[in-house]
Amino acid sequence: MSTPARRRLMRDFKRLQEDPPTGVSGAPTDNNIMIWNAVIFGPHDTPFEDGTFKLTIEFTEEYPNKPPTVRFVSHMFHPNVYADGGICLDILQNRWSPTYDVSAILTSIQSLLSDPNPNSPANSMAAQLYKENRREYEKRVKACVEQSFID
């Protein structure tokens, strides 16, 4: 069955393959275009560098009028990532626009890794360390990067 949401996701996939943004990749799961697996590589010159962080993206039939649910599968230590992997990012909630696609979502999450927003914390420990003890923050993130190779 081909619905507008599924057709849009096919276009997203095509665009992601034809014009892949650096440091992110994603593809629909084998039997369901509404569920995608993605990988974000930790951006250079950040403590996340070299990490390979896996995510799942779940779309509804209301896409692109409603944002998908994006979740880190890899364990993350980041001020805006909840313990269950959920992401606190304005464009995935109240600032969503139907002009975003998978490519835009993944690059936004990638830039969130470089620029956390400690003022709206999803992980208060990470936010506090980010603000007050950057060295410890980086140590915890590095542990996450190591973990991401095994996950």
């Binding site: 619905t3 507008p4 057709r7 849009r8 276009r11 692109p64 139907p98």
Partner: peptide, 17 residues
């Protein structure tokens, strides 16, 4: 059309479906 990513002069994805 930045919403469905089809040329505005063609039918949108919903109408195509």
């Amino acid at each position: 059309c930045a919403i469905c990513r089809v040329q505005v002069m063609d039918a949108c994805l919903r109408c195509q479906a």
